[in-house]
Design a protein around this nucleic acid. Structure first.
Length: 806
RNA sequence: GCCUGGGUGGUGAAAUGGUAUACACGCGAGACUUAAAAUCUUGUGGUCGCAAGACCGUGAGGGUUCGAGCCCCUCCCCAGGCACCA
């Protein structure tokens, strides 16, 4: 008997698969139902593939191969997200131009990915930094621009001093740069934005999507839709009106102050001469405060009285108007009405100011009606509305619509919907990104580059180290152009696009990657979109996955693609950690797959990663268990060889048919659930059994097919050794035949008062009476049936139970 | 603080309300071997017991049920997300 030589066998099949076109889908004329199986494309890294890549690409390929055997035309492409900070930073570090390092890294990475032995189509040459690709990224920009969805404005933006560029809100985490962890500062800059807020409502529609609830929830929270009402308050003695946004108008009888944001345009206008100096000083200080300072302050409230009063028309109460930096200009109207009795922040502010009246308008949990004095008495929800005339006796939930109707009918307010989502800031002051196809002409102003002039070629610049303004500005040939409109002297936009723009449409390019006339052909793409399965890390929930949905939806609205949503089913792989921490070079805890792959082979490594636990959960890496999978591969190979060197083993009989078909059922279910660990366990059990009892050839064929998606090389090898000349991946996934799943003996558990007292082997279709009798016959059961039997339980095939009164 | 997931042997982990701990690692014992490795066989939640078996056991405490890892309530811990968003 010959032992299994993984390195040799794996190389052989990888070559054969590549040559036979196993990795290719018939994109033009798929003859089977299409299945677009996609993993988030990687950025080209100078390092070797890490465990995270394998943890992702192995199981995705397993899924793709499974679907292929289920009869689908599977399209499983892979490209490279090659513009952006990782490539650029790598270039800065090595001192080699990013164009060069990117090229080299992609070529190297392609080889490594091929060595996994996945059926990824790597030949489509999708690289976001190639002119053939970014031409169409620029085209996408122009479509948005034409629709008024790309615009430029001066606004306070997040500036990362480490990366020397602005960042989108989504890229700021706890006030720090998502990438380099530098403290982000606010700057006023004129920048390009995509109007993703116009799509806020559309993006909240997840109908028909098979996505993790958690991801949907995260996006929903990020979009942050809030229904409320804008209430107008007159300023006493002034011809000015302050509009506040609130979602809790039912507490308005308890409103006793108003707070305006320091950034609000009316702040100084409503300040009285006596308060002017104090307010101006406060505004100065607020401006100086960094994000870090604010975090240090925590919830500690500061503020200054403006000297003005807003009139609460409901009560006639004259509400002092304060300016305070806890009120953000970016949300609602930048003005807040304070109900200190029923909002924690409002109470904290009132408390900090000292002389603000607190009125109770909701009964306490124990029916309290006395005034609220301390923070822990503040009652934010539930209860019964009191001291509120028309609303008395209602719950807050009932009172809200009534109050809104009331305010609207008297012209005091208007219902509005607000979102937490901000527009997507896409300009970057960095070198390695797609140029924004805009020309600034002194005469004509902002002019879009005509589509026929695309691509705006990314200029070669030697000094690309970030300085705070785009390095593209250092290329005079790039910057100075003729205005496409008037022919006069003009200058190009020098900022580049956020790489998330590049990655928000690449899945539309894959099926039509060589199209030179359009970004994609609609007919072709409609055959493949939406992506049937999209797999990637959960960290993209509110970035890539939101941006991609947005851009795709815009393209849908413009008629370029039929599908509304880009990703039908979404799965997040878990993260592989080491000693409870993220693997990173700085921590020095990076585990390289290479030594394991060369020692055990790709199949074993892939299976071990899957066997560690559920795919979506990831886990802590340790190499102790990999021998178990390696042993399984040897045992499996031996099991498959046994027949060829028949050693008197009985070719599998009925019993093995049952086990084989049960394995088919269990493994199929596990693969569909992405719990590959369970599928592998099922095959291990079968192998342990079959090594004792032997398998018939028909049984072996079934078993090889079940193994195929999990250990493709090994399965293909044993398939060939059985004398088959076609690829096992051209075979149809086996179905569990119910006739083999029926057992003629099942073990029933016998319970007395729910406690296990014995088991008994019976036919599955036995009658209740017979089963109960058989159970009673057991001495150990009879022992516990001393009292009066009040109930007898019979669950066919499973449980025989007695309930005894004690 | 709020919103999500999770807490099961020494370890990674299985379990449509029905025999908890499948599968694997590790460990113990044995076989093969001059020996070791590899491989094979076998045992392996805890306590008591020669055994049959009994009792306890899925983060803690309650509840529903003949029966709960699973459903309900309260709490603790861990991970992820959001966070002065009105």
């Amino acid at each position: 008997m010959q032992s299994y030589n993984a390195p040799e066998v794996e190389k052989k099949w990888q070559k054969k698969w590549r040559e036979s076109g196993l990795y290719k889908a018939d994109l033009e004329n798929p003859k089977k139902p299409t299945y677009y199986n996609l993993t988030m494309f990687p950025y080209p890294s100078g390092d070797r593939l890490h465990i995270g890549h394998w943890y992702n690409y192995g199981p995705v390929d397993t899924w793709g191969r499974y679907m292929k055997m289920k009869g689908y035309e599977v399209f499983q492409p892979m490209g490279f997200d090659s513009f952006g900070l990782p490539a650029e930073n790598y270039a800065i570090k090595t001192g080699v131009h990013p164009a060069e390092t990117t090229r080299k890294n992609i070529d190297k990475m392609k080889e490594q990915i091929a060595a996994i032995g996945g059926m990824y189509d790597l030949d489509l040459n999708i690289e976001t930094s190639s002119p053939e690709y970014y031409k169409w990224t620029q085209w996408v920009f122009l479509q948005l621009y034409k629709k008024g969805l790309a615009y430029r404005k001066e606004a306070p933006v997040n500036w990362c001093p480490g990366c020397m560029t602005v960042l989108a809100n989504e890229q700021v985490n706890e006030g720090k740069c998502e990438r380099c962890r530098s403290q982000v500062v606010q700057k006023n800059l004129r920048q390009w934005f995509f109007k993703i807020t116009d799509y806020a409502d559309k993006l909240l529609d997840y109908e028909g999507l098979n996505w993790p609830e958690k991801t949907i929830l995260m996006q929903k929270n990020w979009i942050g839709r809030k229904e409320g009402i804008n209430i107008n308050y007159k300023i006493k003695g002034k011809d000015k009106i302050l509009t506040v946004f609130t979602t809790r108008p039912e507490t308005n009888f308890g409103a006793t102050f108003v707070v305006i944001s320091p950034d609000h345009p009316l702040t100084l206008g409503i300040t009285t001469p006596e308060q002017k100096i104090a307010v101006e000083r406060y505004l100065e200080e607020a401006k100086k405060k960094s994000e870090l300072d604010r975090q240090m302050e925590g919830r500690q409230k500061t503020g200054v009285f403006t000297g003005s009063y807003a009139i609460n028309e409901l009560t006639g109460f004259e509400m002092p108007v304060y300016v305070a930096d806890y009120v953000l200009m970016g949300f609602g109207t930048g003005v807040v009405v304070g109900v200190p009795g029923h909002d924690l922040r409002d109470f904290e502010f009132a408390d900090a100011m000292g002389n603000i009246e607190v009125i109770r308008v909701i009964k306490g949990p124990n029916g309290e009606v006395d005034p609220i004095r301390t923070v822990d008495q503040v009652q934010e929800d539930e209860g019964e509305v009191i001291n509120s005339e028309i609303l008395n006796g209602l719950t807050p939930l009932q009172a809200i619509p009534k109050m809104m109707d009331y305010l609207e009918s008297r012209g005091m307010g208007t219902r509005v919907v607000n979102f937490r989502l901000r527009d997507w800031l896409i300009s970057r002051q960095r070198y390695w990104g797609a140029p924004i196809p805009i020309i600034n002409c002194e005469k004509c102003g902002e002019v879009a580059v005509p589509e026929r002039d695309l691509p705006v070629v990314h200029p070669h610049v030697e000094d690309y180290v970030p300085k705070g303004t785009s390095p593209l500005a250092m290329a005079p040939d790039f910057v100075n152009v003729k205005c496409p409109h008037c022919g006069g002297a003009a200058k190009r936009e020098v900022d580049t696009m956020d790489t998330f723009v590049c990655s928000s449409w690449y899945f539309l390019r894959y099926p039509d990657a060589n199209n030179t006339k359009e970004a994609w052909g609609k007919e072709r793409v409609d055959k493949w979109m939406p992506v049937d399965m999209y797999i990637g890390g959960p960290e993209h929930a509110c970035m890539h996955l939101l941006y991609a949905r947005f851009i795709h939806r815009v393209m849908h609205d413009l008629g370029y693609v039929d599908a509304k949503e880009p990703f039908k089913r979404l799965v997040h792989q878990g993260m592989v950690m080491k000693d409870g921490a993220k693997m990173s070079k700085s921590k020095g805890n990076v585990v390289s797959p290479d030594e394991f792959v060369s020692k055990y082979g790709s199949d074993v490594f892939r299976m071990y990663l899957m066997f560690m636990g559920p795919f979506t959960e990831g886990g802590d890496w340790n190499d102790r268990g990999i021998t178990g999978v390696a042993r399984f591969v040897d045992r499996f190979y031996r099991m498959m060889q046994q027949e060829q060197e028949q050693t008197g083993l009985r070719p599998g009989g009925d019993e093995m048919d049952g086990i084989v078909h049960q394995t088919v059922a269990r493994a199929s279910e596990a693969i569909v659930n992405m719990t590959f660990n369970v599928a592998i366990a099922a095959l291990m059990e079968l192998t342990n059994e079959a090594l004792q009892k032997g398998l018939s050839r028909a049984q072996k064929e079934i078993v090889a097919k079940v193994l195929a998606p999990l250990a493709p090389h090994l399965a293909e090898e044993v398939w060939a050794e059985m004398g088959n000349t076609n690829s096992i991946f051209k075979e149809v996934w086996p179905e569990a035949d119910p006739k083999f799943l029926v057992k003629n003996v099942v073990t029933f558990a016998i319970q007395v008062n729910g406690k296990l007292r014995g088991t008994v082997d019976l036919t599955p279709d036995i009658s209740k009476e017979e089963a109960l009798a058989a159970a009673r016959a057991q001495t150990n059961v009879a022992k516990f049936l001393t009292g009066e039997i009040v109930k007898e339980i019979f669950v066919p095939g499973k449980i025989i139970g007695f309930v005894v009164k004690v």
